[in-house]
Amino acid sequence: MKITSFVIPMVVAVVFVYGIYKKVDIFEEFLSGAAENIKVAFDILPALIILMTCIGMLNTSGVVAFFTNIISPAAKVLGFPPQCLPLTLLRPLSGSGALAVYENIITEYHPDSFIGRVASVIMGSTETTFYTVAVYYGAAKVKNIRHTLLCAIAADITGFVVSCAAVRLFM
């Protein structure tokens, strides 16, 4: 039994207990929160369909393998599994695209394999950088974003490189 197995049940218990303590109607609130996310899941679907189709085409036609082969010598030097490279390329650009690539990786390689774990850590420790930048600055009507992208991308690259080291370190 791993200690991480307690994390989820603990969170749920704490939230429910605190909700009852604060006299929140936890059933009703749960329903409205759950309903909102069900709507979101279906809102995502059209985008997911087109992106998964494109990624599937790139995979089966050999385009992904071609580009992965080009970059893989550099990745190998860093000890980075080349199979995870497509994920690092798409991760900062598109959330649903990255989700599709991630699912492909853990379908092809087992989620508990080294490749599957590195992909999981990349998914869990990085974000859709370009989208966030566009939304936030769009809202604040900012045109000159100065060193934002430099700092955000430095963080992303750190996340990719460390993901691989972290799997070796913690597993």
């Binding site: 991480t4 197995s5 989620p111």
Partner: peptide, 21 residues
């Protein structure tokens, strides 16, 4: 997808995210 302990990557994820941040 058949992982035996889906959250066993949590320490690695948090470590990697903390480094990036």
């Amino acid at each position: 997808h058949g992982s035996s302990a889906p959250l066993d990557v949590l320490p690695a994820i948090l470590f990697s995210a903390a480094c990036a941040l």
